[in-house]
């Protein structure tokens, strides 16, 4: 693993400082869509998914300063994955029983949730987390390239369109597309690796 000197303290540490609004913004930018997507994947309707996001964020803000990143309990993401899942199940149960409201005792139980050691139920979370990293990085990397360069990457490598069609569409040679997509990919990878170090 390479370590870069300008690596900032982990996002998690920065979140413990209530003054660090930027940390919260970054956290939300990454995690909010992620949690919502997880909720949708688990079958929640849009409004319920929004509600779940709020509940998870409340849980995070309520416990973040008690969270010790150095403790060998497991990763923050593992923990987040578990409470997201449990809160989702709660929400679904509530829907079923037509009752609303969160009991304090239940809330307390959630806070003590341990990340699942085997990592079984974090698999989906990890997948969605990874997707979110890619999306987040892609949004930023896209701005750094000419539109055609970005599209050469997007159309051939993401959408997997036939190369010949993309050449025609973008009026680029095959070689230019090879160059463009690798340049974008290299930057995308670097951006994601940097994000992984920081958060």
């Amino acid at each position: 693993m390479q370590t870069s000197p300008e690596t900032r303290p982990s996002l998690l540490l920065r979140l413990r400082n209530p003054q660090d609004e930027r940390a919260w913004r970054e956290f939300l930018e990454i995690y909010e869509p992620l949690i919502e997507r997880l909720a949708r994947r688990r079958g929640l309707q849009h409004a319920d998914a929004r509600e779940l996001v709020q509940e998870v964020l409340v849980a995070v803000s309520g416990t973040i300063d008690r969270w010790d990143p150095d403790e060998a309990k497991g990763s923050f993401r593992g923990w987040l994955s578990t409470i997201t899942r449990n809160l989702t199940i709660n929400l679904l149960k509530r829907e079923g029983r037509q009752t609303r409201g969160t009991g304090d005792s239940e809330f307390a139980r959630l806070m003590n949730e341990q990340p699942d050691p085997v990592g079984e139920n974090t698999a989906l979370f990890d997948l969605e987390y990874r997707r979110r990293l890619f999306q987040f990085a892609a949004e930023h990397v896209r701005e750094q390239f000419e539109e055609a360069t970005w599209l050469a990457f997007w159309k051939t490598s993401v959408e997997q369109r036939p190369l010949v069609d993309v050449c025609e569409e973008l009026r680029m040679s095959r070689g230019a597309i090879y160059v463009a997509r690798s340049r974008v990919m290299a930057k995308l990878r670097k951006q994601i690796e940097k994000l992984e170090e920081e958060i």
Binding site: R130, R131, F134, Q135, A138, W154, S157, V158, Q160, S173, R174, G175, Y178, V179, R181, S182, R183, M185, A186, L188, R189
Partner: peptide, 28 residues
């Protein structure tokens, strides 16, 4: 690159390993 398969594949690996290319497609 249009004529050289091996440089093309080198360039792609230099940019990112194959798992990255796969992920870019499946995740994005």
């Amino acid at each position: 690159l249009e004529d050289c398969d091996s440089c093309r594949s080198d360039l792609e690996s230099l940019a990112a390993g194959h798992e990255w290319w796969d992920e870019a497609s499946s995740l994005l």
